[in-house]
Structures are given as structure tokens and as C-alpha cells.
């Protein structure tokens, strides 16, 4: 019983690492650009599929990760530049537009990669299981994923909180006009943050596709869970995405274990509590 409980905690943490990759990009693009991009899930799925094809051709997981991420950076830029930009500050329009984009991406992916669940091949040194302190045996890949998530989180946090460019982005989140008035090219900043978000989403697809599998519909399932992360953590907050990912990842793992038929229902809990107590999320601010 306690062993299972501990294993579920590790499961939840590794899911949290994956969710953080997706949610951090979503939350930062919203924070800076006030853009809600519902195609984030489709970016995840397409990045995963592209990574899968790359991994099969080249046999390299690293190429898959970089290639999956980079191709989404290009796609994301085009979608930002030619579609989302025309919606201005209208969130309703953004949601509908990006849902449309996600439908198209999902449909095209279905035509290319088919309807079966596919998994990105994991490199040999990450396959199998490892022994953790205390005699627990756990899949190596998922454990390394936790370390990877922590690493990406740390890099993002340092960039965001401790560097000049991060300070500019934070200033942009607080007051776009003011930043632009000081002579900083906000548009270039948007492109940069959006590229980081796209890369994270595409990369998450490859990393997640190695243990959750890729299939039509996976884009919405992962997106909604990432949305719950963002809602719980607070829209626009990097720290919120971290805390939210942990809460949601753990809840999901324990939910699947204890109440398999109601595992989705478990996600409803934190949102309802939050709505009653703190409608804008843990780190959310009144706007």
C-alpha cells in the first residue's frame, strides 16, 4: 500500500514535469501577449508525431526532441503572424480561431500518421527500470523525465527572474505600453516568447509521446489538463504553472489509482475549490 502510494507520487510528479512543459508556454504567451492559444495541444501532438518520424529515420532521441520542437517554432510563428495577430485583444475570436487551427492540424496529422496510438521510441539507456533508494523499482524514462522537467523549470525560472531579457518580459506582462514607450521592440519580444512556448509544446509532444502515446484526440486531452494547471496556478504566472502542474499531476495519478472510472472527475475538485476561494488561481492577480 505505501509502496504503491509512493510509486503514484512519482508517477504524478513525472506527469507534472510533462504538464509543466506545456502549461508554461501557454501561460507565458498569455501573460505577455494576452493571447489564448488553444492550438497548444495540437502543437504538442504534431511535435510528437514529427519527433516520432525523425526518431525512426535517424534513431536519435535528441534529434527527435530538437526537430519536433523546432518545427513547431516555425509553424507557431506562421500561425501567430498570419492568423492570431488579426484577432487583436478579442479572446473569444482567439479561442475560436485557434480551435479551428487545432482541428486542421489534428485532421492532417490523422491523414499522415493514422488513427493508431503510436509511441516515440526511447533510447536504450533510458529503457527498462531502475532501483530508487528504498528498494523501489521504477521506469528509468519517467524518472529521468522528472529531472528533465526540473531542469527546464530551473532554466526558465532563471531566465525569467534573473536576466535582463526576463526582466523585460516581466515588465511586458505588467504593462505592455510602458515597455514599448521605453524604446523596447515589444513585437520582437512577442516573437521570442512565442518561439519558446512553441518549442516547449513541440518538445513536450516528443517527450510525452514516449510514455503516453500519440493518437487522434490526445491533443485535447493533454490541453485540457494543461488548462487546469494554468487555471489552478493562475494565468500568466510561471511559478503558478510549476505549482499547478504538481497539484494536477499528483491528483491525476492518485485519481487514476484510487478511482479509475472517475479519474477526470478528480480534476474538477481543485477547480471548484479555487472558484469558491480564489477565482484567479493561486498566483493569479486581479486585472
Amino acid at each position: 500500500m505505501t509502496t504503491s502510494a509512493i510509486l503514484q507520487a512519482i508517477n504524478g510528479t513525472s506527469l507534472a514535469a510533462l504538464l509543466f512543459l506545456l502549461a508554461s508556454g501557454f501561460t507565458l504567451t498569455f501573460g505577455l501577449m494576452r493571447v489564448v492559444n488553444m492550438a497548444h495541444g495540437a502543437y504538442y501532438l504534431l511535435g510528437g508525431y514529427i519527433g516520432l518520424s525523425l526518431a525512426e529515420r535517424t534513431g536519435s532521441f535528441a534529434v527527435a526532441i530538437v526537430g519536433g520542437g523546432a518545427s513547431i517554432v516555425v509553424l507557431g510563428y506562421l500561425i501567430d503572424r498570419f492568423l492570431i495577430r488579426h484577432t487583436g485583444d478579442n479572446h473569444l475570436a482567439q479561442v475560436l480561431l485557434t480551435v479551428g487551427v487545432a482541428f486542421i492540424i489534428g485532421d492532417v496529422a490523422l491523414a499522415i500518421w493514422g488513427g493508431d496510438a503510436l509511441k516515440v521510441p526511447v533510447p536504450p539507456f533510458l529503457r527498462g527500470a531502475m532501483e530508487l533508494p528504498g528498494g523501489l523499482v521504477y521506469p528509468t524514462y519517467r524518472f529521468v523525465l522528472i529531472l528533465f522537467g526540473v531542469f527546464v523549470g530551473a532554466v526558465l525560472w532563471v531566465l525569467y527572474r534573473k536576466t535582463q531579457i526576463g526582466a523585460v518580459v516581466r515588465a511586458g506582462v505588467d504593462d505592455r505600453e510602458q515597455v514599448s514607450a521605453t524604446g523596447i521592440d515589444v513585437d520582437r519580444l512577442f516573437v521570442l516568447v512565442s518561439a519558446v512556448a512553441s518549442f516547449l509544446a513541440g518538445m513536450a509532444g516528443v517527450v510525452g509521446g514516449a510514455f503516453l502515446a500519440l493518437y487522434p484526440g490526445a491533443e485535447w486531452e493533454i490541453l485540457v489538463v494543461a488548462l487546469v494547471v494554468v487555471i489552478v496556478g493562475g494565468l500568466g504566472s510561471l511559478e503558478g504553472a510549476m505549482v499547478g502542474a504538481l497539484i494536477v499531476g499528483l491528483l491525476d495519478a492518485y485519481g487514476r489509482w484510487l478511482l479509475p472510472e472517475f479519474s477526470y472527475f478528480v480534476l474538477f475538485g481543485p477547480m471548484a475549490v479555487l472558484l469558491l476561494v480564489r477565482p484567479r488561481g493561486i498566483f493569479g492577480r486581479e486585472s
Binding site: 498569455f30 489564448v36 479572446h91 473569444l92 479561442v95 485540457v224 488548462l227 487546469v228 494554468v230 487555471i231 494565468l235 480534476l267 474538477f268 477547480m271 472558484l275 477565482p279 484567479r280
Partner: peptide
């Protein structure tokens, strides 16, 4: 946006 996202999740 919060309303939209929460209703999606619900």
C-alpha cells in the same frame, strides 16, 4: 478568458 477556460475544463 478564465470563464472560457474553466468551462472547457468542466
Amino acid at each position: 478568458v478564465y470563464f472560457i477556460l474553466i468551462t472547457i475544463a468542466f
